[in-house]
């Protein structure tokens, strides 16, 4: 399974709509087996959703995301875990161990 996270300076990007870097994590049996970065050049919701789909992403972890982006990504069958904040490695560990819904990974007010 492929997990994608929008990253900025080793933390989850504040806003998906204009995030520039995507970290793709390969997960097998709740273990990370590899990771690589992808640059996000595209601006439109359709292009971003299509890129995620082409990369085979099943789950997207991101910071804030506006509904025009979220709705289109979800129509591609990609699950979004929005409004996540924190250091990228901590967030991946929390996702793998089921602890991502802990309040410390939530953006303020979310």
């Amino acid at each position: 399974m492929k997990l994608a996270l929008t990253v900025c300076e080793n933390r989850i990007s504040p806003l998906f709509d204009c995030a520039r870097m995507l970290l793709i994590v390969d997960i097998v049996d709740r273990t990370s087996t590899g990771r690589h970065f992808e640059v996000l050049h595209y601006e439109s919701p359709f292009s971003r959703a299509a890129k995620l789909s082409d990369l085979g992403v099943k789950v997207l972890i991101c910071g804030a995301v506006s509904d025009q982006f979220a709705n289109i990504i979800e129509t591609y069958g990609i699950k979004i875990v929005p409004f996540v904040a924190g250091a990228v490695d901590d967030v991946i560990d929390a996702y793998l161990t089921g602890g991502l819904y802990n309040a410390k990974f939530r953006m303020p007010g979310c």
Partner: peptide, 15 residues
Amino acid sequence: GKHCREVFRSNMCET
């Protein structure tokens, strides 16, 4: 006490 861009979340924050 939080990082400002995780509170403000604008399209300018990252770049």
